[in-house]
Design a protein around this nucleic acid. Structure first.
Lengths: 198, 198
DNA sequence: TAGCCAAGTCAACACCTGTTGACCTACGGT
DNA sequence: ACCGTAGGTCAACAGGTGTTGACTTGGCTA
């Protein structure tokens, strides 16, 4: 009977992810999620405590960033763009997180954490691995700069996802993967490795 | 007594804009808006019919784009970035529209319309004014391209606004106006006038 | 086989939502 | 002075929300 619990838990989580992704935090009701999972609403409370904790469990996410420092400098933007599109499309978690983070403070905090804790360090490794600038031990400047670069990448990555997957702006939704990478790649590369004037 | 009606209407609209901008569509309740405006909730219905129509009135927005074709080609990105930041900061309407458009389909439709009807044509004027390419009468290719460019600009403009004003990512919120324009300007310029590879 | 306990069901709670209709109130034109 | 009417108030409605607690079921262990 233990197995039944794990399975139920999984079904609830899957239904929650779909609902949060489709409707956002407030419009995704526990009753609707329970109905999708074909269980009683009280079960959701039993397994996750309350709606906030359910969302927290449903929106857990790992960007699974590759090691950027192993890539040629000119390909890093295209590679990261491709990786973002992959992560976005093989799971509804990111869509759920984005939709919720616009009106829910806890979700927004998680989004901030995502870029600060996962993208920031990956970018830092990029700059410290750069020959010629690694000699200086000035961590403060280097990490502040990495955080800024992570923020800039976030503006373009989240903006593209917003327009394509949430708002469905026709010209953005119509882009092929290749076109999207061709347009965004150079932008991301500049944010990752360029200086302020290009 | 006619004046009282106009004033009340204005007070309601101002309160509605603030609430929609701060809370999004569903969490901004008519009761809260009425309380902010220091009037009875029933007055909101009297003046605007229902919540949807109230939002439609509160989120009316004109980008007031300048004539892009009068600007030097290299400055157009920086100029547009500055204009966007201005329009974003001197009014809460855009923030209300963005927050709502993530969970409300009517608001999303309005957002799509904003970029299709206002930014698209402005960009089209840019490309038709270009010497050397204006000769051809191929409107289909030219306008499709303008729509795509408008979409790309939207991804960066909305993404930046999302990260800075809604999610408040620390490194993005910390950028000065000059830094923001220096980073985004070249990106917008490329989306407006560049070809796909830069 | 008996009994315990996890898994699941059911009905209700207290609250909040948009919206409605009946009622007051006070000014402007006659 | 009077009264129609525009502006404003009040209480209630029907429905939906997250959440709770008492109850039933059924498989595993002792």
């Amino acid at each position: 009977m233990k197995r039944s619990a794990d399975r139920t838990r999984g079904v609830i989580l899957a239904a929650a992810r779909e609902r949060f992704a489709a409707d956002g935090y407030e419009r995704a009701t526990i009753r609707a999620i329970a109905a999708d999972a074909a269980i009683d609403p009280a079960m959701v409370m039993r397994y996750f405590g309350n709606k906030e904790k359910l969302f927290a469990a449903a929106a857990e996410f790992d960007l699974r960033l590759p090691d950027l420092s192993r890539l040629p400098r000119e390909e890093v933007g295209a590679a990261l763009t491709n990786h973002f599109l992959d992560r976005w499309e093989d799971d509804e978690s990111l869509k759920a997180l984005l939709r919720a983070s616009v009106t829910n403070e806890a979700a927004a905090a998680r989004m901030r954490q995502l870029f600060a804790d996962q993208l920031g360090p990956a970018i830092m490794s990029l700059s410290t691995a750069r020959p010629g600038t690694a000699a200086s031990g000035d961590h403060a400047v280097s990490s502040a700069s990495a955080a800024t670069r992570a923020g800039l990448v976030a503006t373009q990555a989240l903006g593209f996802a917003l327009c394509r997957y949430v708002l469905a702006l026709p010209p953005v939704a119509a882009l092929t993967r290749e076109e999207a990478v061709a347009w965004l790649g150079p932008t991301i590369t500049r944010y990752l490795t360029g200086d302020v004037s290009g």
